[in-house]
Design a protein around this nucleic acid. Structure first.
Length: 427
DNA sequence: TCTGGGGTCCTAGGACCC
DNA sequence: TCTGGGGTCCTAGGACCC
């Protein structure tokens, strides 16, 4: 039984560097929407002690002194690079679980133990050569151990990017576990780390030595699972085909404070359009939607207001218009004037398969078929001519929208837009 | 001046039922 | 004055992940 975890180093930064080789060896960060926080750091930036999630404005001085280059996030580029990387890795196993944009698990059961290291090396080489992304590989008997092995492969140069846990002598394994802080364990976050430390559990080794049943009582079944996995007992199965989402959200912080009900309504309508599209793409219907509007928690001197409303639909739907209407009602109820709103969003809830949907007692089959056809047409037009080609007027017609997010340093869509296509300079 | 977005899962506790 | 026991379902909140 062996599972590999493959993930890219500083994924977003590495994607940018593929098209900007001049960024190699220089300190680079990628920023979140609105150029707000650091969400990816090159090794050079990590070495400067910049932590994940640092607000960019707090780094101005350091950035100037050290020459840090900041790029706005370019998610369509990263998604495309991710697809290419995952495609290559999928050839190494019939069972691949794409766990996030930059990492996947591969089921390597049946591969002889003495072949695993070579296989890890091959995967690494191929991704680097074919798409230009550096990846690390950890291979072990459980997902949790594979995660740890991956960490070891990246942190310790002698492993050259690939660590096969069961190739290590028992004494070496113990020594590594005793070096790693318990916070490195997959599933152990900030709160749990504090609670564990309070009871004297500092290292991964310490956690491994605890009694799983007792820890389940003190924490939860998730803790028990993690401990068992650390001991080499698989508890977390591979998920080959991703199940449909149970919740779909769309939300954004605004590029500037928003005060008027009109602008707020535009924003919420736009997020509703996006969420409904995601819903249809996975073949689902939603039975309820939740809308929220928030002021900025960082502007403590201004009046704060956080409001949310959940609206249950009479009948589960995938019709953008139904959600728009419900969303507008919710907003009208919540809206208070005289406040500086910083963020709004829409969640679609109670999601089920469109195939299993019961007929609506109060809508004729004909009307429903027409509505479905309208949505199919809408999605087709937008797929062909670009998203936003056709959309409800309530989402706002004026471009650019005043409240839209700021992305000052966005790179071109090198791989997904003809005009931006990367090409070698001939001269 | 400037602080992201999108998910899953588990548990506790209340409402309700017999 | 005295006020059971056991079960299910739902939701909010909190933890985690990237």
């Amino acid at each position: 039984m062996a599972i590999a975890l493959v993930d890219a180093n500083n994924f977003y930064v590495s994607c940018e560097r593929v098209f900007r080789p001049d960024l190699e060896g220089r300190p680079v960060v990628v920023l979140s929407n609105n150029d707000g926080c650091v969400v990816a750091r090159s090794a050079e930036v990590k070495a400067l002690g910049v932590v994940m999630g640092t607000p960019w404005f707090q780094l101005q001085k350091l950035a100037k002194r050290e020459g840090i280059i900041a790029l706005s996030s370019n998610y369509s580029l990263y998604a495309d690079m991710s697809n290419r990387m995952m495609g290559i890795l999928s050839t190494f196993s019939p069972i691949q679980e794409v766990y996030s944009i930059d990492e996947c698990f591969l089921d390597l059961r049946g591969v002889a133990q003495d072949r695993l290291f070579h296989m890890g090396q091959a995967a690494r080489q191929r991704v680097l050569q074919w798409v230009g992304l550096p990846v690390g590989v950890g291979i072990a008997a459980t997902k949790t151990l594979a995660k740890l092995a991956n960490h070891v492969a990246k942190k310790m140069p002698e492993y050259a990017g690939v660590c096969v846990w069961d190739d290590l002598a028992e004494g070496d394994q113990q020594r590594l576990l005793q070096q790693l802080p318990v916070s490195e364990v997959w599933g152990v976050g900030r709160q749990w780390t504090t609670r564990l430390q309070e009871t004297g559990i500092q290292t991964v080794w310490d956690l491994r030595q605890t009694d799983p049943a007792l820890m389940r009582k003190r924490f939860s079944i998730l803790m028990e699972r993690s401990i068992r996995e650390l001991r080499g007992e698989p508890c977390i199965a591979m998920v080959d085909i991703p199940p449909p989402r149970q919740e779909i959200q769309s939300s954004r912080s605004f590029g500037r404070p928003v005060t008027s009900a009109e602008e707020l309504g535009e924003a919420i309508s736009l997020y509703t359009v996006k969420a409904a599209y995601k819903l249809r793409r996975q073949g689902s219907v939603a039975g309820a939607l939740r809308v929220f509007i928030n002021t900025s928690p960082f502007q403590a001197h201004l009046p704060q207001y956080h409001a949310a409303r959940t609206i249950a639909l009479n009948h589960p739907s995938q019709d953008t218009r139904v959600f728009l209407q419900a969303g507008r009602l919710a907003l009208a109820e919540m809206y208070r004037s005289g406040l500086a709103y910083a963020k709004a969003g829409v969640h679609l809830l109670e999601i089920t398969s469109a195939d299993a949907l019961q007929a609506d007692l109060f809508t004729s089959a004909e009307d429903e078929a027409r509505a479905n056809q309208l949505m199919i047409t809408l999605d087709r037009v937008n797929a062909r001519f670009g998203s936003g080609t056709l959309q409800p007027g309530v989402a706002g017609l004026q471009e650019p929208r005043g409240w839209a997010m700021k992305r000052g340093n966005k790179s071109p869509a090198y791989t997904t837009r003809w005009a931006d296509l990367a090409r070698a300079k001939l001269e």
